[in-house]
């Protein structure tokens, strides 16, 4: 029982990371029915930019926790910018010409370019990311949890909550929801839906970059760190449903916990299998995702 709870606790923080990245997939899908297949690389770049920034700040004799907090807005701003670039270079033209394959190829290609860029700037080796919180695990009735794991859960929920609040309360957020509902009708309201789509790409990459600096202190940072995370989060987005906000959190947790359980009870080499099996099951049994509403096409 103790071990099981321990495994679940460990699975939760990984799952929340998947959830945040998957949340990013949802953001662009909602407004444009397209996805950024370079989400993993957005995470990588965010983590690496964060690493350089935090090391610089620590070099200025700023204590690590403060340096981490100061680094966050810079990484978030970088993520916004990076996502906007992806939309402008890779997606906009494909949407304009209604090209189905265009945005897939373009976002994958940009992802590869970003990965190469990261390799050339930061090298191929995994780098240690300074942890803003003590690395000593806390014990909750024998279950050991790292403070950073708690920070991941809190940070991930906070990000999604803030985006949701923006969508519900501000007129610009409502414009985003309107665009997701019906792009043409949103245009008739005087909403520049092209900018809304650019913005959703920016927000999507920002979420990934944030996930990058959340996870970096408990893993390692490097040019390839995002590739697998991006892919698994894609599975989470499909499992949870591309249109269900809460679905990605639950989907992320399911996958995160399934992985730690498999890794312990079966064989750590099979750790990646449950997610993919789940993905295949969902795709064949409930293609709109476990929590997604089936899309009704109105004529």
């Amino acid at each position: 029982m103790q071990i099981l709870l321990q495994l679940i606790a460990s699975g939760i923080s990984v799952g929340m990371i998947y959830g945040v990245i998957a949340f990013g997939y949802q953001l662009t899908f909602a407004t444009s029915k397209t996805l950024n297949f370079g989400q993993g690389e957005a995470l990588t770049l965010g983590a690496l930019v964060g690493l350089t920034t935090i090391n610089f700040l620590i070099g200025q004799a700023i204590a690590t926790p403060w340096a981490y907090l100061l680094m966050l807005p810079i990484v978030l701003a970088f993520g916004l910018l990076q996502g906007a670039v992806v939309e402008l270079l890779g997606v906009r033209q494909a949407i304009k010409t209604n090209s189905e394959a265009g945005w897939i190829m373009a976002t994958i290609a940009l992802g590869i370019i970003f990965r190469n860029l990261a390799e050339n700037i930061w090298g191929r080796d995994a780098l240690r990311f300074p942890s803003p919180l003590p690395e000593q695990a806390l014990s909750f009735g024998g279950i050991r949890i790292q403070p950073m794991e708690i920070a991941i859960v809190v940070g991930a929920l906070l990000l999604m909550l803030l985006v949701e609040l923006f969508n519900r309360k501000s007129i610009y957020g409502k414009a985003v929801v309107a665009t997701a509902n019906d792009r043409d009708a949103a245009g008739l309201m005087g909403i520049n839906t092209r900018i809304v789509i650019t913005f959703s790409y920016a927000l999507s990459s920002m979420s990934a970059a944030f996930a990058g600096v959340l996870v970096a202190p408990i893993t390692l940072t490097g040019a390839t760190m995002g590739a697998v995370l991006g892919l698994k989060a894609f599975a989470v987005a499909i499992i949870g449903g591309l249109s269900s906000g809460a679905g990605v959190v639950v989907g992320g947790l399911i996958l995160g916990i399934a992985e730690t359980l498999t890794g312990y009870y079966i064989e750590s080499g099979y750790k990646d299998v449950p997610g993919l099996v789940l993905l295949l099951l969902v795709l064949s049994l409930k293609p709109s995702g476990l929590f997604g509403k089936p899309t009704i096409k109105k004529v």
Binding site: I171, K174, A175, V177, A178, D182, L188, M189, G190, I191
Partner: peptide, 19 residues
């Protein structure tokens, strides 16, 4: 009609005044 189905009646009206 093309109303924004996941938004409230009030929000639909507010968006009419977006500009």
């Amino acid at each position: 009609r093309r109303v924004f189905s996941t938004l409230s009646v009030e929000d639909n009206l507010l968006l009419g005044a977006f500009p």
